[in-house]
């Protein structure tokens, strides 16, 4: 599939409902933060042009997806053609941490990426601005367990951020952009750019039936 301009890097943000996916995107793109929570419907995206690695200009198309389950059937439409996936959890919500693996698997299934083993992910633990008392006990240990698990573990870069106070957000998305660009370049080398439809199904054509049907 070649309709997309290749300097455009598609980034998908996944994670449980309420972990702050929309806030992270808004903070990074618009430098805004809203205290009001509003669940994302389906998905929405924002774009931001940034400069990475020797002033190479890239446009990040960041897709903020709905964490609610009812929208998950739409995932395939959003995930297709992604160059990087951000797995988000809330440092005060242990369940959201534990679900990271599910989100990763869901993404790999729905997106049909050609190199699931090497596809770039990044983990963001959001809301570090809250009191330590509210944070997940032994967070670092638990996080370490998740990321160091060699068998299907999430051995990816981890950033702890605060979308509210704009802590580490820029840095995290800079790494995201670099990883997405690498993935993009890898796709170019493998010739994968010509077709993003890895899930296509052949259909039967009644090729001899040409002519007037009258």
């Amino acid at each position: 599939m070649s309709g997309r301009k290749k300097t455009l890097l598609k980034v998908i943000i996944l994670g449980d409902s309420g972990v702050g996916k929309t806030s992270l995107m808004q903070q990074f793109v618009n430098n805004k933060f809203s205290h009001q929570y509003k669940a994302t419907i389906g998905a929405d995206f924002l774009t931001k042009e940034i400069s990475i690695d020797n002033n190479k200009q890239v446009t990040l198309q960041i897709w903020d997806t709905a964490g609610q389950e009812r929208f998950q059937s739409l995932g395939v439409a959003f995930y297709r053609g992604a160059d990087c996936c951000v797995l988000c959890f809330d440092v005060t919500n242990e369940k959201s941490l534990n679900n990271l693996s599910s989100w990763k698997d869901e993404f790999l299934v729905q997106s049909n990426v050609s190199n699931p083993q090497d596809f770039p992910f990044i983990i963001i633990g959001n809301k570090i601005d809250v009191d330590d008392s509210k944070k997940i006990p032994s967070l670092q240990k638990k996080l370490s367990n998740i990321t160091s698990n060699q068998l299907g573990g999430l051995n990816y870069p981890v950033f702890e951020t605060s979308a509210k106070d704009a802590i580490n957000v820029e840095q995290a998305f800079e790494v995201v952009a670099k990883m997405a660009l690498q993935q993009e370049e890898l796709n170019d080398i493998n010739g994968g750019v010509d077709d993003d439809y890895n899930d296509a199904i052949n259909i039967h054509l009644e090729s001899d039936n040409y002519g007037c049907a009258c």
């Binding site: 599939m1 309709g3 997309r4 419907i41 389906g42 998905a43 929405d44 995206f45 897709w63 709905a66 009812r70 929208f71 739409l74 439409a77 959003f78 297709r80 053609g81 439809y197």
Partner: peptide
């Protein structure tokens, strides 16, 4: 158009290549 639940409707925006072009309308 996508049926969201019993009484709600959702709209997905795509281009001819099947790429999502906008957010979702509810």
């Amino acid at each position: 158009l996508v049926k969201s639940d019993q009484k709600s409707l959702m709209g997905m925006f795509m281009n001819a290549n099947g790429e999502v072009t906008r957010g979702t309308l509810l």
